[in-house]
Design a protein around this nucleic acid. Sequence first.
DNA 1: GACACGCTTCGTCTATGATCAAAGTATGGA
DNA 2: TCCATACTTTGATCATAGACGAAGCGTGTC
Lengths: 234, 234
Amino acid sequence: MDVKELDEGAVSRIAAAIGEPARARMLYALLDNRARTSTELAMLADVSPSTASVHLSRLKTEQLVRVLVQGKHRYYSLASPDVAGVLEGLSVLAGGSRAEFVPNTPNRLRAARSCYDHLAGTLGVLLYDRFESTGLLEPAPRGRDDSRELTPKGVKLFEAMGVDVNEARASRRRFAFACLDWSERRAHLGGAIGAAFLGAALKKRWFSSVRDSRAIVVTALGSRELAARFGIRV
Amino acid sequence: MDVKELDEGAVSRIAAAIGEPARARMLYALLDNRARTSTELAMLADVSPSTASVHLSRLKTEQLVRVLVQGKHRYYSLASPDVAGVLEGLSVLAGGSRAEFVPNTPNRLRAARSCYDHLAGTLGVLLYDRFESTGLLEPAPRGRDDSRELTPKGVKLFEAMGVDVNEARASRRRFAFACLDWSERRAHLGGAIGAAFLGAALKKRWFSSVRDSRAIVVTALGSRELAARFGIRV
DNA sequence: GACACGCTTCGTCTATGATCAAAGTATGGA
DNA sequence: TCCATACTTTGATCATAGACGAAGCGTGTC
């Protein structure tokens, strides 16, 4: 705990805000990192628009969500990765005693997990850093601050490993963005291209997902290929 | 999210259990990793014993606490490090917009934080592993499963760096135990000796604490001393 | 200006949960 | 066996919060 005395009142208000089933449904609906309108969230939470409005007001007051007003629409999204982290932590608790299976492989090979459908964790962060430092990834010329774009070199290498970059680009979701990793406190690659990368790596058996877990393991083949193609040693 | 569909009902019940101020006070009182009796928690939460009993029953039902019965006493403690992690996450949210100051030093020098009063985070885990692998730390011959003991070699090295091992042993708290680090999912050194180690390292300026944060930075001196005395490179 | 849509606010009703005192149960010590 | 202590259970009371329909407000389109 920080030296400052904790305000349990603030903590309990936040927890209570999450603790109402309708609000919980709204928050978890926002975990996919998309903004949603009040009406959408009302439907997802299975409450009337007026009820949803009051709930969203409460979530906003507790700084769990933020709202972007565009004309008559109000787009709600999670306020921060910290909020996502707490929701994730709570979902781990809700998962009960199903302890995560930890395979008997070296830790460095396991320090990854999937974040929704892309790679997070220590490995995800490492790969993101290397993509940027080796000139495969760069800030997108326009769009949100965290938007990213593949360089021509990056397109080439991703295509070479089996990622259909154009398909990822054509996707309705964001192409690439720096998804702040909660546990690592740094960014990993989110968006359609992040998902495509993970999908291709799994398909080529560079990575292996651990059963009943979001943990991702790098295979021996994956180590070799990442070193040879991307200059990344894991 | 795991492939399995999340049970928002379970999540909201857990969050609601935390969300009542009296229960929140009890949970945070348990964050120091000590077991406390029902009567103690009633006082800490400022409610009557009967109210406390009902609240503790609720926390037990949601698997946030566990109870050890000894005679007529019931000792409550947090059920798991995951629970502590969620409480920590909620306290971060409750801290509001006071973003953690991130100094412009290499990440590997910052990957540590204090857990209560001992060292956690990546560095804490690394040190723990090295203490064990270099024969400074071993499972305690008796006591709880997670109890640890310094070997004679360990005592010598800790004394040499300024840690009063006997004072730590005489402390009313546990001497040493494997404190499961939530973010790293592995153990770091908890207990009086863990606190003494961190205290000595700070005093000798091997480590430096980051203002307004629980982050701990390894100094250049610290890197050298850890390498020379413990064979640990960070 | 009129109309439709998205969303908020208001008023009301109902269910739920926190509270404690009193009574009950289990344990330990004399 | 009796008494004290720790804790639980029960019953009653009260406050709070979630629910929605109706009305109101702001925005966009024609």
